[in-house]
Computed example of a mutant assay.
Amino acid sequence: MAAPTHLVLIPSYNTGRQVLETVRAARAAWTPVWVVVDGSTDGTDALLRDAAAEDPGLRVIVLPRNAGKGAAVLHGLREAAGQGFTHALVMDADGQHPADRIGAMMAASQAAPEALVLGLPIFGPEAPRVRVQGRRLSNGLAGLETLGGGIGDCLFGFRVYPIGPLIAVMGRRPWMRRFDFDPEAAVRLCWRGLPVVNLPVPCRYLSKEEGGVSHFHYGRDNLLLTWMHTRLILGMLLRLPALLWHRRRAPRPATPR
């Protein structure tokens, strides 16, 4: 499938050969697919460039140094906006996100182009228990920060963003460049009044033997998320009258089945 307004954007950092499988699956589902290599040192930039040389539907952007997922996404969004794209489906390079659901996510976005389309993860039995339970706190805080704005899962990075509003949100502040990107982007876009569509999709955690890679550091990144939620709660309090007014006027968030 293809559309002149929508592209798939995959940030990648040291994900090994798994990124090639992710890209192949994404390309089977959509055109075009862009990969932003975020300063990888594992040689995957060369592998991806070789793949792009044989596939006009694949573009590879290589950043000189690692700056974080959000920074890589922002770089890709600015490039995409410059070429006339209005929406980007962002997915991880590590194989967790289901490429066979790209079409459904894009269709939901095309039906409601003003909306933020969020994947709502369905976890399998292999999902780490601590990760599944731990995200409940972040999801509860996101619900508080948006006064029930309808964010089904603030941490799941498989989602379709309207490019213009996201660039505007990220360009005004220095945050949202690393693991704080996914939850803060969803909350701040809700604050801007974007409606939310939650679309249930399966989520797969790959083992190390299957090529699974995680760069999440429990100490460092939980501190980052704690600071993020602190500033978002403070921001919610400052916006409370406007958020209450918006909540009264907004339609109920949609969850396609």
Rank of each mutant, 00 (worst) to 15 (best):
A2D: 09
A2W: 01
A3N: 07
A3D: 15
P4N: 03
H6L: 08
H6F: 06
Y13H: 07
T15N: 09
Q18D: 00
V19S: 07
T22S: 13
V23S: 03
A25G: 08
A26K: 00
A28S: 06
A29N: 03
T31Y: 00
P32H: 02
V33I: 09
V33D: 07
W34H: 08
V37M: 05
S40V: 02
T41H: 03
D45V: 01
A46F: 06
A46T: 06
L47C: 13
D50E: 13
A51S: 14
A51W: 03
A52Y: 04
A53C: 08
P56T: 02
P56K: 03
P56N: 07
R59P: 01
V60E: 02
V60D: 00
I61T: 15
I61N: 09
L63F: 02
G68W: 00
K69Q: 14
K69C: 11
A71W: 02
A71F: 04
A72E: 08
V73C: 15
V73T: 13
L74Q: 13
L74A: 15
G76C: 03
R78M: 12
E79W: 13
A80Q: 06
A81D: 13
G84R: 10
V90L: 15
M91R: 03
A93K: 04
A93D: 14
G95E: 04
Q96E: 14
P98C: 14
A99W: 04
G103I: 15
A104S: 14
A107F: 08
A111Q: 15
P113D: 14
P113H: 15
V117F: 01
V117A: 05
L118T: 14
G119I: 14
P121W: 03
I122L: 15
G124P: 09
A127E: 12
R129G: 11
V130R: 15
R131I: 12
G134V: 04
G134A: 09
R136Y: 15
R136I: 13
N139V: 11
L141P: 06
A142P: 04
G143N: 13
L144F: 15
L147E: 09
L147C: 09
G148M: 04
G149I: 10
F156T: 02
G157L: 11
R159V: 10
V160C: 09
V160E: 06
G164N: 06
P165N: 10
I167S: 10
M170Q: 14
P174K: 09
P174W: 10
M176E: 02
R177T: 06
R178E: 06
F179M: 05
P183V: 07
E184V: 06
A186T: 05
V187D: 09
R188D: 11
L189W: 02
R192M: 13
G193T: 02
V197M: 01
V197Q: 00
N198L: 05
L199V: 15
P200A: 11
V201T: 06
P202R: 03
C203R: 00
L206F: 05
E210M: 10
S214A: 09
S214G: 12
F216C: 12
G219F: 03
D221P: 03
D221G: 02
N222P: 00
L223E: 11
L224M: 14
L225D: 04
L225H: 10
T226A: 15
W227P: 01
W227C: 12
H229E: 02
L237E: 01
L238R: 11
L240Y: 07
P241F: 07
R248G: 07
R249Y: 02
R249M: 12
R252T: 10
R252P: 00
R252G: 01
A254G: 00
R257M: 05
R257C: 07
